[in-house]
Simulated assay, not measured.
Amino acid sequence: MRKAGFRTLMLALLMALVVQSTPTNAATATYADRLYSPMFITKISGLYFITDSWNHRIIYSRDVKLPIREWKVLDEYIAAPHSIAGNGTIFIAEDTGRDRLIVYTLTTKGFVRTQAISGIAGRPHRTIYDPATQKFYVLTSDTQNMYTLSVKDGHVVIDSKKNLPYMEASYVRSFSIIDGLMYFVSGPNQILVANYKDGTFSLQQKYDVPEGYRAMNDIKKIGSYYYITVYYNRFIRLKDLSDFSTAEDLYTKMGFKGVPYYMSYFDGKVYVTEIDSYSAIRSFKVYNDEISKVDVMHDYGPPNAAVLNRKRILGT
């Protein structure tokens, strides 16, 4: 049997062993008891965070498998947050629907909301903290601006705001730092690669993206492969961004039911959030480019009346 065929067979067998964690009362649960479009999950300084976007809140826990109703609430008055990043003390999340950023400081008594940075026009959509530069980076999806922020005396300040014309006024949902460069997912029918450490964000490379993959959500490099999530309903990996004909379908193999959104890596696993028509968080391990231990950690299925009503509260 060829290696690719063996990999497919093994992944199918693994899917048969996936542990489902859908609560029996998911259809009738209150919004506080379940997720609705959890855009992002991450781990920072021993704490797990979920941006429960369409429930307009951010929650956190010391146990990633704890039932959602038992997670602590960082903020439940934040309009459709997409991600959160932190340096261990200072944390920044997008108040996407209000075009601003919210800053939280971790103190000995817990989290304190310390700043609201307004005027980040155009839907701030993705925030990353980069230890190499000790700076935060925030991308606005509608206006194609990249904000660079730093922490001075415990206070977050905006260092620069750069418009990225090579995005061609397209809606760009995310970016990642890969091998010392910044990779922007395709909005303008291309994956774009830029310098960022010198503050110029000058374009270094671009890869054409075929139709069907252009509305990308996220990109990560894991092992030899680039992993890419796409709106609607595609999750793929490939070794060469110049050749999408080699893309391996992970969406079907892993049993996704909604839109695969942002990815993250912690605790030796890759985590992928699932949003829109179906809310869940999936994880898997990668060793020598082989995928194993596919799991569904939080599975809440289609939205119920409680979360649909919660989404309408802030109208975004």
Rank of each mutant, 00 (worst) to 15 (best):
Y104G: 04
T105W: 01
T105I: 00
T105M: 03
L106G: 08
L106Y: 09
L106P: 07
L106W: 06
T107C: 01
T107D: 01
T108Y: 04
T108G: 11
T108S: 14
K109D: 08
K109Y: 07
K109M: 01
K109S: 11
K109H: 04
G110E: 01
G110R: 00
G110N: 00
G110Y: 00
G110V: 05
F111Y: 05
F111W: 03
F111A: 07
F111D: 02
F111Q: 04
F111I: 02
F111N: 01
V112C: 00
V112M: 10
V112Q: 09
V112N: 10
V112D: 12
V112K: 11
R113Q: 14
T114C: 05
T114K: 09
T114E: 00
T114L: 05
Q115L: 00
Q115F: 03
Q115I: 00
Q115N: 06
Q115A: 00
A116W: 09
A116I: 10
A116L: 08
A116N: 11
A116D: 12
I117A: 01
I117P: 03
I117E: 00
I117Y: 00
I117K: 04
I117W: 01
S118A: 12
S118F: 07
S118L: 05
S118E: 10
S118H: 12
S118V: 08
G119P: 05
I120Q: 05
I120W: 01
I120A: 06
A121H: 12
A121Q: 13
A121K: 13
G122N: 15
G122E: 10
G122A: 14
R123K: 15
P124M: 09
P124E: 09
P124T: 09
P124H: 11
P124F: 10
H125Y: 12
H125L: 06
H125R: 11
H125D: 13
H125Q: 13
R126V: 10
R126P: 01
R126E: 13
R126A: 08
R126I: 14
R126Y: 10
R126N: 13
T127H: 09
T127M: 09
T127E: 15
T127R: 06
T127G: 11
I128H: 12
I128P: 08
I128W: 10
I128C: 08
Y129T: 02
Y129P: 02
Y129D: 05
D130N: 13
D130K: 08
D130S: 14
D130Q: 14
D130W: 11
P131E: 01
P131Q: 04
P131V: 03
P131T: 02
P131D: 02
A132I: 07
A132Y: 07
A132V: 13
A132E: 15
A132F: 09
T133Q: 06
